[in-house]
Amino acid sequence: MALVPTAAQAGSKTDDGSSLGDAQGNRQGRNITVETKVRTTVKGSSDSGRTGNLSSSDGNWTPPACWYEPAFSPKEIQATVKTWRGISGLPFIGSIGDFVGDTLDQRYKDGKPYKNYNLDKQGEGMFWAAAVNPNRKDDPEAMACDKPPFWVDNGVTPPEPLAVSPQILAEYAYDELPVPGTEIEMRPTEATKVNLPTWIWLDKAKFKKISVTASLPGTGLSATTTAEPVSLHIDPGTSDAQTYPASGDCEINADGSIGEPYANGKANDTPPCGVTYLRASGSDGSYPLQATVTWNISWTSTTGEGGDLPEGTFGATQDVTVQEIQSVNR
């Protein structure tokens, strides 16, 4: 059985740059689902270079893969049944339309548990249905919302743990945070030398607070999730190296930058953020230096609820060639 609402499709960009999920219905396995109507808007994203999505530093936590949200009016349920019955008799379809229509009517018209599609309650509530997080539609957890559409009066929070809430909106917004890539600046740029410090830094213009607001149209319900960069972790790609600081964690400076740009005359100084390789990478070889930024995540909402979510990380790998220092004997 599948429900296909007559609500207007979205899925396109709005005038303010936000996006709106489709209100179309479909079926995943045994689940009746709708593509979410939740809108997201971004503030403070970097326009320099590529962006990506955060990975939770808590291996036991991920944003929700599905939830329940308002999806169908009584008239939409009634129209859906009429549409199904209208396709019976088409080639390759046979009487399946009447079969689906009878099945829907049993639940939504004949009093098991709803009567006459709840038309007498038009405007007083909505049928809520399972919505799948489009970023996690292939996750097994996306099948957890397996209840058929159920009625909820306006202003009532259903006793369902996965019913859309400020926190669920905030956790969904976590999935939508477009954090900037971590292609670091390095000196030397092309090849570094054994036992000479390599300076590493990140431009302050790329690493600012980023927020995503997730809202459910028509409900006044929204939550804003904010990511703030706090540190850069350097993994030199080999144990034959020394990082600065020794932990490999470079803190964010007061101006939002990380590390310090190299300047002439500092070749032998210790960088605030960097690495010294102790062994050459070999002929035509390189070390995979990984730079990962950690972001603190917090959220607020229109209901006054808020708090913290697990830290997020996003990183990239750059190949570093390390050469022996050449000397000439006279």
Rank of each mutant, 00 (worst) to 15 (best):
M1W: 06
L3V: 12
V4P: 00
P5A: 03
P5E: 02
A7F: 06
A10M: 02
G11E: 07
S18H: 03
S18W: 03
L20R: 10
G21I: 03
R27F: 08
N31A: 09
T36I: 03
V38C: 08
T41S: 14
R50K: 10
T51N: 11
N53D: 13
N53V: 10
D58Y: 14
D58V: 11
N60Y: 11
A65C: 08
A65T: 08
E69W: 02
A71H: 01
S73C: 01
P74F: 07
I77W: 00
Q78H: 10
V81G: 00
T83W: 10
R85T: 01
S88Q: 02
G89V: 08
F92P: 00
I93F: 07
S95T: 14
V100Q: 04
D110A: 08
G111S: 07
P113C: 09
P113M: 10
Y117S: 01
N118I: 06
G123R: 13
E124D: 14
G125Y: 09
M126N: 05
A129M: 01
A130L: 03
R136Q: 10
R136S: 10
R136T: 02
K137G: 13
D138H: 14
P140C: 12
A142W: 10
M143P: 00
C145F: 05
D146A: 15
D146V: 02
D146E: 08
P148E: 12
F150I: 08
W151Y: 09
V152F: 06
D153Q: 10
P158V: 13
P161F: 12
L162W: 06
A163W: 12
I168F: 05
L169R: 04
A170W: 01
A170S: 07
Y174N: 02
D175C: 03
E176K: 13
E176W: 13
V179E: 05
E183Y: 14
I184F: 12
E185K: 12
T189N: 13
T192Y: 07
V194C: 09
L196N: 11
P197D: 12
P197H: 11
L202N: 02
K204V: 00
T213Y: 03
T213D: 04
S215A: 15
L216D: 03
L216E: 06
P217I: 05
T219D: 13
L221W: 10
T225D: 07
P229D: 04
V230K: 13
G237R: 01
S239V: 05
Y244L: 05
P245S: 07
S247T: 15
G248M: 05
C250Y: 00
C250G: 05
A254W: 04
S257R: 08
S257F: 08
P261E: 14
N264W: 11
A267V: 12
A267W: 12
D269G: 04
T270S: 12
Y277S: 03
R279E: 15
S281Q: 13
D284A: 14
G285W: 09
S286N: 15
Y287S: 09
P288Y: 13
P288V: 10
T292F: 05
I297Q: 02
S298G: 08
T300E: 12
G304I: 11
E305K: 14
G307F: 06
D308L: 07
P310A: 01
E311H: 09
T313D: 07
G315R: 04
G315N: 06
G315I: 05
A316C: 01
A316M: 10
T317E: 11
D319E: 14
V320D: 00
V320N: 00
T321K: 14
E324W: 09
